[in-house]
Nucleic acid binder design. Structure first.
Lengths: 145, 145
DNA sequence: TTCAGTGCAAACGGTTTGCACCGCG
DNA sequence: CGCGGTGCAAACCGTTTGCACTGAA
């Protein structure tokens, strides 16, 4: 937590009790909570906090690289008629998704997970980056259909 | 498309013009469209179709394994204070997410993508399956916080 | 004292649902 | 002709936004 305060100072972010509570609650768990879950956890000891503040704070901390959000392309579900086993290459700029197949990726070892009592059903690889168009800032970046 | 009709017959799904239009539009593209995008594409030639029908149909086709949805955990964003490079093990039953690290996965070859003009920024592996609790149907499955 | 941060309430956008009607099998 | 599928409108739910207030620096 002292480290967190230091990081805030470094980045000229105000160290507010709300931020401490939110980051603290997130750092204290490995359950990958939702914004709502954090809000509920904090609300007990901090009844005046608002859900909007939780969202705004999480956005700030993510932008500053202090936390990360797990939810690829959460804006809208994307569908695919391609039913053969494949992985995804996602352009983080324009949102374009390309399929690719890779026999090697389909055979990633699963022992690590099984040893921890986890039954592996699928392993999906998502390659994030910039597509040809977006790599060269010339082109306009278009949002997907 | 004949194949699609056959699959519908097999599964006792009514072959309606709407379903044909929706599946057809999806099969005809590799752009991983959203429900809305499909709706717009179909609406031109099929002005009476409803967005709700598109959603219901996509859900049906996904349940039957004829198409797939790309949007892991789209219900709500999940946050994580763990900033070291890691991957995710996701229980598809209870939604629990565990982090794991794997040096080998961090070094997956990127040549294939670069050759296609794609600049790789990150490669994320998501291992889907059943966690210890959910593997053995004894335990109740709890939704995440 | 100043401006970033907070809290409220209202808006938003993607998705789901209830229900009456329709048309495939 | 029966029941699964469709279309409409309203509800839902996670998230974002506008705005006035507050408190960290």
């Amino acid at each position: 937590m002292t480290h967190f305060v230091g990081q805030c100072r470094l980045r000229k972010l105000a160290v507010t009790p709300q931020r401490l509570a939110i980051y603290g609650a997130l750092a204290r768990t490995d359950a990958h909570p939702t914004a709502e879950g954090l809000y509920r956890a904090i609300h007990v000891r901090y009844p005046t906090i608002s859900l909007a503040t939780v969202y705004k704070t999480l956005e700030t901390l993510e932008r500053e690289g202090l936390i990360s959000r797990f939810s690829f392309l959460h804006q809208a579900a994307r569908y695919d008629a391609n039913q053969e086993r494949h992985h995804h290459r996602v352009c983080i700029q324009c949102g374009r998704v390309e399929d690719f197949t890779d026999r090697a990726l389909d055979r990633l070892p699963t022992g690590v997970h099984q040893r921890r009592g986890f039954k592996v059903l699928a392993q999906l690889v998502q390659v994030n980056g910039l597509c040809r168009r977006c790599k060269h800032p010339a082109g306009r970046s278009v949002r997907p259909t």
